[in-house]
């Protein structure tokens, strides 16, 4: 999986390319930890190129959402493909995370 990062002011844009599964999720987890280290930040995920998300990937998103809640910033997911969107719907994540 590839993560393309673009920080503009207090918002970080993360575009994920490929599959977010139990192996690649640690990569995203590290990336997010690095971002949160530097103080409050909002995150916008670009999931246009994300092919698949597993429960391990969901767990990272959930952790991020909790962190965002405690910081009082925002987390948003944009451009999710139908297959990924379906996962968010089935698991109820679409009720917890802002999905455009």
């Amino acid at each position: 999986m590839e993560i393309m990062k673009n920080i503009e002011g207090s918002t970080a844009q993360l575009a994920l390319v490929g599959r977010l599964d139990s192996i690649t999720s640690t990569q995203l987890s590290k990336e997010l930890d690095n971002l949160f280290e530097n103080g409050p930040i909002s995150i916008v995920f670009d999931f246009n190129a994300l092919e698949y998300i597993s429960s391990a990937g969901l767990r990272i998103l959930l952790t991020a959402q909790k962190k965002i809640n405690s910081m009082g910033t925002k987390l948003k997911i944009t451009g999710a493909r139908p297959l990924v969107k379906e996962v968010f719907d089935v698991t109820g994540f679409s009720g917890i995370i802002e999905i455009e």
């Binding site: 959930l62 698991t91 109820g92």
Partner: peptide
């Protein structure tokens, strides 16, 4: 709680997704 929809099969008809209201996973929030 965020699980895959089960399939239900009536004695006459075939298998279909069991419609149910969606809720968030357990342990998340």
């Amino acid at each position: 709680a965020g699980h895959n929809l089960p399939l239900i099969c009536s004695a006459e008809g075939g298998y279909n997704w069991l419609s149910c209201k969606k809720s968030f996973v357990l342990g998340g929030m």
